[in-house]
């Protein structure tokens, strides 16, 4: 059981199969969905996709970090980070599917 990496192309293909728009338009719509989500997050909005999860933006304060190589102290500037919380539905979905065929733990 080898892991695959799913990309935009797979998502566009799924939209193409499911909705029956042209391949080009399907790809443009996938992009448009990601863009709208990114825009909302950039405005500082939370994005809630029911039964999938919530993307939210968290403000981090300034703190002192350290260059691990030189041990030198460097200030880490305040910044905004994106946090994704999977919904219980998604967590359940993944666990039901992966719990049975456990082929060694890979972390």
């Amino acid at each position: 059981m080898t892991e695959q990496t799913i990309t935009r192309a797979h998502l566009s293909e799924a939209v193409y199969q499911e909705v029956g728009l042209s391949r080009n338009e399907s790809a443009a719509l996938v992009e448009s969905v990601l863009d709208e989500i990114a825009d909302a997050l950039t405005r500082g909005e939370m994005v809630k996709i029911s039964s999938f999860g919530t993307f939210s933006v968290r403000q981090k304060g300034q703190r002192v970090g350290r260059n691990p190589k030189t041990g030198q102290e460097v200030p880490i500037l305040p910044r905004r980070v994106l946090v994704f919380r999977a919904s219980h539905v998604l967590k359940g979905h993944i666990n039901n599917a992966l719990a049975a065929p456990s082929s060694g733990t890979s972390d």
């Binding site: 892991e3 695959q4 799913i6 935009r8 799924a14 039964s51 998604l90 979905h93 599917a97």
Partner: peptide, 21 residues
């Protein structure tokens, strides 16, 4: 369209796959 996108991501994760956008 929107549901298909999130369903595909969820299905991929349930297979243990990675989704890279």
């Amino acid at each position: 369209i929107v549901s298909t996108i999130f369903d595909e991501v969820a299905k991929a994760l349930a297979r243990g796959d990675r989704v890279e956008l």
